[in-house]
Design a protein around this nucleic acid. Structure first.
Length: 113
DNA sequence: AGCATGACTAGGC
DNA sequence: AGCCTAGCCATGC
């Protein structure tokens, strides 16, 4: 039964959300990827906003390394009051280094398959 | 059907 | 170099 009429966005199968989740799971430990990159891997290079929604929708539910997803500048987009520190701590725990500006060196930790 | 929200991105000034 | 605007995708009311 492939319910194409998924109520919550992703109904098993080729939905954008499903691809996005899968792309996020593909991020190697100790590496970070940008929203746009995830969207691109999902097939929609301009769907960075959709990635945001997916993370919100699955945040805490699905086992997604959401902390490995940051913006294209290499900085954490989360607000200081909304898990910013947690994400930073998780990335550091994986070996990702932050500079004094709270920025990650994408040339070094950026996910490049 | 339209407007508003969300952890975005790229381009222009 | 920094701020602003427009574009994109999906969901909820």
């Amino acid at each position: 039964m492939k319910s194409s009429t998924g109520k919550c966005g992703q109904a098993g199968g080729a939905t954008l959300a499903e691809r996005i989740k899968r792309a996020i799971r593909r991020i190697p430990r100790g590496r970070v990827a940008s929203y746009g990159q995830i969207a691109a891997l999902a097939g929609h290079p301009r769907a960075a906003r959709a990635v945001v929604w997916v993370l919100h929708s699955s945040s805490g539910k699905a086992k997604l390394p959401w902390h490995r997803v940051i913006n294209s500048r290499g900085t954490i987009s989360l607000r200081p009051r909304c898990g910013y520190e947690e994400q930073r701590a998780r990335l550091m725990a994986e070996g990702v280094a932050f500079d004094s500006e709270g920025r990650v060196d994408l040339r070094r930790h950026g996910w490049k398959e």
